[in-house]
């Protein structure tokens, strides 16, 4: 098989600019020609980093008309991704770089790929949000406002359905920490969370898999890939510090794998009262306060708060009583 010819100069300039200036490391899988004469190549497959993985998009130019903007063919499982659908006269189309394509501008392909990638992230979030999995819905509702988190759903006939989250950790610029930084791309450490999708009526949801991930450049310096975080177990705990007037106390939340379907068990611990052994006074586990798995997340938080406002007064009394018993 003969080697495929080179791209026309205008397209080469755009591709080179994309590969050298995009903040993430994009790769070209193959370049080939769709013309009859095959004087120039005019189509290529891009591997675009997304959610600690790569997505494959075919960029189709036309060597006959190098001035015309390219078209893009997305992956087989993304037949519902239509970046310019339902936007009519306004919306995304007005801002799109395709409205005003200038083939002589080498930055155009980068603008297009960036624009599509941003829309693809929105599409993936929406797709995951539509899944019928209570646990996932909850997780997504808690991360939605945070920037930089990417969500991706693996789907396909021969793949187990799972949703991946990539959460960038640390708000510091790692590149600045290394003297004479040799890296072109911004280095980051990510927490990767993989949720197996569980359908309604399925038995207990499977615990997510957690892992810290970083780029290969960073791996040369730190051994980050080896850190595997423990799987989600029954009785994971979170503790909050609270106060009511001058009474200060801790609230321990114990979460089961069924959370938020099942309410967390609460234990209050005083910061000011100690028993005869010198250990802080704690409440018995509180497990039957008002709760409904059908409440939205905000309502759940509100109801816990309301419960604690009342319960802490009882607890304060309990603490004072136990102290009086001491003397």
């Amino acid at each position: 098989m003969a080697a495929d010819p080179i791209l026309p100069p205008l397209i080469t300039a755009q591709l080179n600019y994309l590969l050298s200036h995009y903040p993430l490391p994009i790769k070209v899988e193959q370049i080939w020609s769709g013309g009859k004469a095959q004087q120039f190549s005019d189509r290529f497959t891009l591997l675009i980093p997304l959610c600690l993985d790569y997505i494959k998009w075919d960029v189709i130019y036309n060597a006959q008309y190098p001035l015309v903007a390219p078209d893009v063919i997305f992956g087989v499982e993304d037949e519902n991704f239509h970046p310019f659908f339902n936007t009519g006269e306004g919306g995304n189309t007005k801002k799109s770089c395709l409205c005003d394509w200038n083939c002589k501008d080498p930055t155009m392909l980068l603008s297009l790929i960036h624009e599509l990638r941003v829309q693809y992230i929105v599409y993936q979030r929406k797709k995951v949000g539509q899944l019928d999995d209570e646990r996932l819905k909850f997780e997504i509702s808690t991360i939605h406002p945070r920037e930089g988190i990417e969500v991706y759903m693996n789907s396909g006939p021969d793949k187990a359905e799972e949703v991946k989250f990539a959460v960038p950790l640390l708000d510091m610029d790692l590149n600045k920490l290394v003297l004479l930084c040799p890296w072109r791309h911004q280095q980051k450490i990510y927490l990767q969370v993989i949720f197996p999708v569980s359908r309604k009526y399925s038995p207990a949801p499977t615990a997510p898999r957690l892992k810290l991930v970083c780029s290969s450049e960073l791996k040369a310096l730190f051994s980050i890939d080896d850190v595997k975080l423990p799987a989600w177990l029954d009785g994971m705990k979170a503790t909050f510090f609270a106060s009511s007037g001058i009474f200060t106390f801790l609230v321990h939340f114990s979460l089961s794998t069924q959370f938020p379907k099942q309410q967390p068990a609460l234990v209050l611990q005083s910061s000011q009262h100690f028993n005869s052994q010198g250990t802080p006074v704690v409440s018995p586990p509180l497990i039957d306060y008002p709760w409904s798995p059908r409440w939205d997340v905000l309502k759940m938080a509100e109801r816990i708060f309301d419960f604690l406002v009342e319960e802490c007064l009882e607890f304060k009394k309990y603490c004072n009583d136990s102290r009086h018993q001491q003397y």
Partner: peptide
């Protein structure tokens, strides 16, 4: 020629 047999972004629009 020589492209996947599924509709592209522009063909959908």
């Amino acid at each position: 020629r020589k492209s996947p047999l599924r509709p592209s972004m522009r063909e959908f629009s």
